[in-house]
């Protein structure tokens, strides 16, 4: 009898948990979309913030462009280094000790909170190197943040490449670099691009690292790497935090999550295409 009771409670627990999660997701998305859609318009997307206080009218074009640029710089910088590190660990590193050290450093870095990375960017890039609050400073800071994220995923993908095919390639007397470029990277490229785009979504949504390093309340579309930028998440924070305009905040949030979902969907599509080809 007690057994039945336990079993029922256990099932109830699982179902209730699942419902809570699904309802939360539904609520969050629904809340942003329903509220956002009321106040969004084409004009909002293609014009600059106006009004007094600034942002209470007008649009968010510079913030959209700013966020995209930040993402581009962050991903470009981080993926270049992350790809090299992953290749080194999987293909060139001979000692498992060095491999462990790399893993520990990357793992630790993944655990450094984004605000502390922001702190580093602010003091080192903005102040010490004199880059100022700029697109470049903020982009590089975000790059440091997403580096571990990209490295771990690329390394996993390279690690999963068929050992038998690798051995066959080396057995033909072919070099590692040739094997990498002709065999491994073409096969893993969807995964690599997916990892980078996913990191892009992560970078685009991050606020803490850019508060101090480059994001400002208002700036035109940046003309150079040294100009300060507007960014969607920071703009949303200012609109809410300063109580400037709730309506604009809803619309900004909608634009931000739409962009991030679009990026995530690209990433998922790439990963599943890889799976189909591979099978």
């Amino acid at each position: 009898m007690r057994k039945m009771e336990n079993s029922r409670l256990f099932k109830l627990w699982m179902v209730v948990s699942t419902l809570i999660v699904l309802i939360s997701v539904g609520f969050i998305i629904g809340y942003i979309v329903l509220n956002g859609i009321k106040s969004i318009s084409l004009d909002f997307i293609i014009s600059s913030p106006k009004g007094l206080p600034l942002g209470s009218e007008g649009g968010i074009l510079p913030a959209i462009v700013g966020s995209l640029l930040l993402m581009l710089i962050a991903c470009g910088f981080a993926s270049f280094l992350a790809l090299a590190t992953a290749i080194y660990v999987v293909f060139y590193c001979q000692s498992s000790q060095i491999e462990n050290i790399v893993h520990i450093i990357v793992q630790c870095m993944a655990g450094v909170p984004s605000i502390v990375i922001g702190l580093f960017g602010y003091t080192f890039l903005v102040a010490k190197l004199g880059l100022g609050r700029s697109l470049l400073s903020a982009g590089l800071t975000l790059g440091v943040m997403v580096f571990p994220f990209i490295e771990v995923r690329i390394e996993k993908s390279l690690q999963e490449f068929s050992t038998a095919a690798l051995q066959s390639s080396y057995a033909l007397g072919v070099s590692k670099a040739y094997t990498l470029f002709k065999l491994v990277l073409p096969q893993c490229k969807e995964d690599i691009v997916a990892a980078i785009t996913l990191a892009g979504g992560f970078a685009m949504g991050a606020t803490a690292p850019i508060i101090l390093t480059g994001a400002v309340i208002f700036a035109p579309i940046p003309s150079s790497l040294s100009s300060p930028v507007m960014a969607l998440p920071f703009h949303l924070y200012i609109l809410t935090g300063e109580g400037i305009s709730l309506e604009k905040a809803y619309a900004t949030a909608l634009v931000l999550i739409t962009l991030i979902f679009a990026i995530n969907i690209i990433s998922i599509a790439l990963t599943s295409r890889r799976k189909e080809v591979g099978s």
């Binding site: 809340y31 803490a208 949303l236």
Partner: peptide
């Protein structure tokens, strides 16, 4: 699909969470 939904949850930026948290 459910895993996709969970990924959506992970992809929402923290400032949006803060925004909803404050308003709701």
């Amino acid at each position: 699909i459910i895993r996709g939904i969970i990924d959506i949850l992970a992809g929402i930026p923290s400032v949006v969470y803060g925004f909803i948290g404050l308003l709701v």
